[in-house]
Design a binder for these strands. Structure first.
Length: 551
RNA sequence: UGGGGCGUGGCCAAGUGGUUAAGGCAUCGGGUUUUGAUCCCGACACUCGGAGGUUCGAAUCCUCCCGCCCCAGCCA
């Protein structure tokens, strides 16, 4: 699908109009995360929207950290976000921006507002402020400090800034309208005292600007023309505009909101993802089960798959829940097109050939449809492993129902011989230990001879030339489509079997030294990549192959 | 409840008064295949939250009703 096939969404229409009317000469957007956690798939949509818009309208997109609350933020988060945006393949305009770089200007604007009599230092505490704010149906009451002289507010704000005032005892508030039907307009807090070090400004500041007082002005400073955020900020827009109108800002940005991404069986809330990490439900932010960018990366999902998925999503004002299957489709689609093929046996069953005692090297293509991906060598010896699930003694199984190896029958070994299972060897407990089998001569790369009908094709690996590995199989992290819905906590719906570790798997030797960034399809099993943290050979299952047959 | 926003197939959606109501995912049939994958064909909304109304003509305009989401942090 090309861009021209895609209908334009409402934001593209607005931008198009603004560009053609001359209201906007060059589009500037921004992706403005708060560095208080790792980025997740929901952010990926926002990133794709903002950077994508800039790309398609020949504009620019800034990367800006909205670091106005030092309590929750850290440099670790800053670094992870930078890495994730880069990994997704986007290039931001110029240097990375930080709200904290604008603290001085923001403070100046706060003083200007006081001088205009549009802001005041308020001494109501949090509880009192809540009471004065009123409710959804009742107007609020004006603060007793609302009409204090500007000079007094200026002096008090200076003291707050200097660290002379206790946390929680004073705030700087805008003087707007305590009876506004929009609660955000009822004298919102502009500055609050936090005598805490900031990860970038250290202890320079004792007061920090609130989101509403910062965001629009940051956009204005950077010349952002279209400030695109998610729906929950819609009620903040009048306030955003109020600051733009009442302050001497260098440009006039406009805010537009679209529906954030929700995916079933998953969670797209930084706060909740942090909880999963903090409470040890997952290993870390980059646990392969996490919907974080870093988790998806470690899981083996490609940046292109994430981008294709995000591009398939609507930019609209509806807030729906996208089916995980839609994401999985794009993961598989990209991997199918680009992942090299290899073989790995998860549950090895030894097969010994009684009529073969050589060692051969076969060449197998790395991809059935892409010659450019080259080929690899396959060791074939007198002993191989097949998967336990690919063998059955039940000769009554129909050919349609079981396309694998059955005692006394034939099967094709992928890229190698057709073989016949002749005998089952059991251990003392009666468990199948080994299969004695025969190789059918001259069947490599050749059609089955007359009278021999293999039931199907199975994967295998040489028992003499293979590498041991461990495989992590994942299931969805939550066993409920909407972990957030209903009573109780989302953590009540964590799937206890989301990780299955399989030891003693056997992989073809070409897999011994691959890098985590190389993604493979293990034929007939799924897509895998090497884990980036494990020292041994560990593969994470990104996603299984589609499975259309009904057992 | 005051304000803001949203309701089109199982899911995501296009649709901007005249189209046989796009497309993708999922699902179900069938074909190809040395991966039960891929690929290819085909099926899948007389109807757009509901009820009225305007109009030659309505998913699109009007009225009323119903449902869902967001806002009462010194979070973002």
């Amino acid at each position: 699908m090309t861009d021209s096939d895609k209908p334009t969404n409402f934001i593209e229409q607005i931008i198009g109009d603004d560009l053609s009317s001359g209201k906007t000469s060059k589009l500037v957007t921004r992706f403005p995360p708060e560095p208080n956690g790792y980025l997740h798939i929901g952010h990926a949509k926002s990133i794709c929207v903002n950077f994508g818009l800039a790309e398609s309208f020949a504009g620019e997109c800034n990367l800006r950290f909205d670091d106005t609350n030092p309590e929750k933020e850290s440099d670790e988060y800053v670094q992870s976000i930078i890495e994730d945006v880069k990994w997704l393949g986007f290039n931001w305009n110029g240097e990375i921006r930080y709200a904290s770089d604008y603290f001085g200007q923001l403070y100046q604007w706060a003083c200007d507002l006081i001088d205009q009599n549009k802001a005041y230092v308020c001494e109501l505490n949090a509880d009192e402020m809540r009471e004065y704010r009123g409710t959804l149906t009742e107007a609020g009451k004006e603060s007793p400090f609302r009409n204090r002289p500007a000079t007094e507010s200026r002096a008090l704000l200076e003291q707050m800034k200097a660290g002379e005032i206790a946390e929680g005892s004073m705030t700087l508030r805008a003087k707007i309208d305590m009876a506004s039907p929009n609660i955000n307009m009822r004298d919102p807090v502009l500055y609050r005292i936090k005598r805490i070090a900031h990860h970038r400004t250290g202890d320079k500041w004792n007061i920090y600007p609130a989101y509403d007082f910062a965001h629009g002005q940051e956009d204005a400073i950077e010349g952002v023309t279209h400030s695109i955020c998610t729906l929950e900020f819609a009620a903040n827009r009048p306030l955003y505009n109020w600051f733009i109108e009442n302050l001497d800002v260098p440009s006039t940005p406009s805010q537009y909101e679209f529906g954030r991404l929700n995916i079933n069986y998953s969670i797209t809330s930084k706060r909740k993802l942090k909880q999963l990490v903090d409470e040890g439900h997952v290993e870390a932010w980059d646990d392969p089960r996490m919907p974080t960018i870093s988790g998806l990366r470690r899981r083996g999902v490609s940046p292109q798959a994430i981008r294709n998925f995000c591009d398939s999503l609507a930019v609209a004002k509806t807030d729906g829940v996208v089916d995980m299957a839609q994401f999985e489709h794009f993961i598989r689609d990209d991997l199918n097109n680009n992942a090299r093929r290899a073989m790995c046996v998860l549950k090895p069953l030894l097969v010994t050939f009684t009529n073969y005692d050589q060692s051969e090297l076969f060449t197998a293509s790395s991809h059935p449809q892409r010659d450019d991906l080259g080929s690899r060598e396959l060791h074939f010896d007198r002993q191989i492993y097949i998967d336990q699930s690919d063998f059955s003694e039940d000769t009554t199984l129909s050919r349609k129902k079981f396309k694998r190896l059955v005692l006394g029958e034939y099967v094709r070994l992928r890229g190698a011989y057709i073989i016949r299972a002749d005998e089952v060897i059991r251990d003392a407990d009666g468990e199948i230990q080994e299969i004695k089998a025969s190789v059918i001569e001259n069947t490599v790369g050749a059609d089955a001879p007359e009278g021999i009908r293999p039931r199907g094709v199975i994967h295998w690996v040489s028992a003499l030339n293979s590498v041991d590995c461990t495989i992590n199989l994942y299931d969805r992290l939550f066993n409920q489509a909407l972990p957030d819905a209903g009573e109780g906590s989302f953590t009540d719906h964590i799937n206890p079997d989301s990780l299955k570790v399989i030891e003693g798997c056997k992989a073809e030797v070409s897999l011994a030294n691959i890098k985590p960034s190389e993604r493979y399809q293990f034929e007939r099993e799924g897509y895998f990549c090497r884990d980036s943290k494990a020292e041994n050979l560990v593969f994470n299952c990104t996603i299984g192959l589609r499975d259309n047959w009904k057992a």
